[in-house]
Design a protein around this nucleic acid. Structure first.
Length: 376
RNA sequence: GGAGACGUAGCAAAGUGGCUAAAUGCGGCAGACUGUAAAUCUGCUCCCUAUGGGUUCGGUGGUUCGAAACCACCCGUCUCCA
């Protein structure tokens, strides 16, 4: 029995966008959804209980970081990641594939795997596709990711091809290595850079391996919106309609709205939490930087349309003050807001899909948030 | 009353003859951030008609080719002793 399954609950008659339910050992969650990222077993400044209560659904953690500290065996002894951090809902761990990209200066790639430097003490650390899965087995998330290489943009076609073929071989190795196939589902990751045939080929081969879900990787690494849209489009064309599709690393509002149009079911991103720490807040009228002088005497709620704790209780003037004072409570309030904002955006998107008005919903949001015509 | 120290841009603080419109930090202004080595990073922050010009380092006067820097006096601040 597959631990992670998916059922489609509605297809928008006009846009073709879909809603669904992702079934996991830690509960069911509705899609399309946004998944907050808690790299070090914490979504920075937000408690796991708060995340659950704000409807976070799936929360991410990271293989590389937990491997280095505290070590996956500690998480395992704690009874798994959910018990370790006291999160009740489903979780997903990224494989370390993004660190192949983000820590590129200090790692070496071979067919066998990735030699990383421990960013904490400089030690050499070797991560193979099997090792990544075994670490994730110990961490114990519901959904675990196959080790891939997230390549930069731009990349040569030749490099994208070699890398993608290796990612495919790693996917096969990782899938075979899963020690907990009854409780943890492995997702394969489509790579191939900005190349239609490579994206198609990669997706087809992954589908032959038969994963419970498929991710699209290698996006939001500096490419323009049109390129991202192309890469996502090519990647998902070959994926089975009834399996969940996870677009990795996407979290800008316009990107999410476009992704939903393209039948993406899951997205994750550090963007809402990172920019929150820097004072940038997502609102129904677009992004604002709460530190700006114009909010000093603005005694209105941050976003009157938002139902989050921050918007229900505090004014822009107060948030402006906390930001200028660099107070941790402000950072908390900003993080809570941005995460809830994206979760609610997806809740609203689901409602619109169920009422067959997703196209109108999307256009209205893009217009209100002042995104230009190019959108995605 | 006596002795000493000091006054530099919004604030703090370097600089003691030319490389100084003046380090650095804070504050202020603007921007970036997309599977987190990020509570981070990048610009700008004396004035202007601006790849140039103008006026600055408590005040005034002086020394010098040249002064924030050296000298004199004045104003002010602080510390210690009475």
């Amino acid at each position: 029995m597959n631990p992670v399954t998916f059922e489609i609950t509605h297809i928008d008659k006009n846009s073709g966008a879909r809603t669904g339910i992702l079934h996991t050992p830690h509960g069911d969650v509705e899609t399309p959804m946004f998944m907050p990222v808690g790299t070090q077993a914490t979504v920075k400044f937000i408690s796991p209980e708060e995340l659950y209560d704000m409807g976070a659904g799936v929360v991410l953690a990271n293989t590389y970081h937990l491997w280095l500290r505290p070590g996956e065996e500690i998480v395992e002894k704690a009874g798994g990641i959910q018990k370790f951090m006291n999160y009740k809902g489903p979780m997903l761990t990224d494989s370390g594939g993004f660190q192949v990209f983000s820590l590129a200066k200090t790692r070496k790639l071979t067919e066998e795997g990735v030699e990383f430097r421990n960013i904490l003490n400089g030690d050499k650390m070797f991560l193979s596709p099997e090792k990544s899965i075994h670490i994730q087995n110990a961490i114990g998330a519901d959904i675990i990711m196959s080790l891939d290489e997230c390549i930069p943009f731009p990349a040569s076609r030749d490099y994208a091809e070699q890398s993608m073929l290796r990612t495919l071989r790693w996917a096969e190795r990782g899938k075979q290595a899963n020690l907990h196939p009854e409780t943890q589902g492995v997702f394969g990751i489509v790579q191939g850079g900005d190349n239609e045939d490579l994206r198609h080929y990669c997706a087809e081969k992954l589908v032959e391996m038969d994963f419970p879900g498929y991710a699209i990787g290698g996006t939001s690494v500096g490419e323009d919106k049109e390129t991202m849209k192309r890469m996502v489009g090519w990647s998902q064309e070959m994926l089975p309609f009834n399996k969940p599709r996870y677009l990795m690393g996407v979290g800008a509002v316009n990107d999410l709205l476009e992704a939903v149009s393209m039948n993406i079911d899951m997205c994750d991103c550090v963007l809402p939490t990172r920019i929150a720490r820097h004072g940038t807040l997502m609102t129904s009228e677009g992004r604002i930087n709460i530190r700006k002088a114009q909010y000093k005497e603005d005694f209105t709620p941050l976003d009157p349309e938002c139902d989050c704790y921050t918007c229900r209780n505090y004014t822009r003037a107060y948030l402006n003050h906390l930001c200028r004072c660099d107070e941790g409570f402000g950072t908390r309030l900003f993080s809570i807001h941005n995460v809830r904002f994206l979760i609610k955006l997806m809740e609203d998107a689901r409602q619109a899909i169920k009422e067959d008005r997703y196209n109108e919903f999307k256009e209205e949001k893009l217009h209100n948030m002042k995104f230009d015509e190019r959108g995605f």
